[in-house]
C-alpha cells in the first residue's frame, strides 16, 4: 500500500536533496495545458516528462511546469524548453514518445531535437 508512512520516507529522502537544489541554472520544461493542448494530447505528454525526469534522476536539473494557450493551437501539444543563457526551444505536435526523446537528448545531453521544433514543422 502506498501509505502515508511511505510518503514520510520519501520526504526524508527529498529533504536532503532539496538543500542541494538551491543552485540556479535550472532547465524549465513548459507544457501548454489549455483546452487546445489538452484536446490534442498534452496530458500524457506532461505526465511523461514528469515521469522521465523522476526516473532518470533529473529533478535537480529540470523542472516541469504548465502554462495556458500560447496562441499556436494548430501545433499543440506544444512544449517550450527554457535554459539559462540559451534561446528558448519550442517543440510542437508532441507525444509521449517524442517527450522521452527530448528528455534523453535535450535535457540529459544538451542537444536540441531539431526535427520536433517549430522551425521544422511549418
Amino acid at each position: 500500500m502506498k501509505s502515508l508512512e511511505e510518503l514520510a520516507a520519501i520526504r526524508e529522502k527529498m529533504a536532503n536533496k532539496m538543500a542541494l537544489r538551491e543552485n540556479a541554472g535550472e532547465i524549465r520544461i513548459v507544457v501548454g495545458m489549455a483546452t487546445c493542448g489538452i484536446s490534442a494530447g498534452a496530458r500524457p505528454v506532461l505526465n511523461t516528462f514528469v515521469e522521465e525526469v523522476a526516473n532518470q534522476g533529473l529533478s535537480s536539473k529540470a523542472t516541469v511546469t504548465q502554462t495556458g494557450c500560447i496562441g499556436i493551437c494548430q501545433f499543440e501539444p506544444v512544449v517550450e524548453v527554457f535554459e539559462p543563457g540559451k534561446e528558448k526551444v519550442t517543440y510542437v505536435k508532441m507525444n509521449p514518445e517524442k517527450a522521452r526523446r527530448v528528455v534523453e537528448e535535450h535535457i540529459k545531453n544538451g542537444r536540441t531535437v531539431s526535427e520536433y521544433t517549430i522551425g521544422n514543422n511549418q
Partner: peptide
C-alpha cells in the same frame, strides 16, 4: 517540499 516534485507525484 512542493507537491510538484516528481517523486511526490509518483506517490
Amino acid at each position: 517540499i512542493p507537491l510538484s516534485e516528481p517523486e511526490i507525484l509518483m506517490w
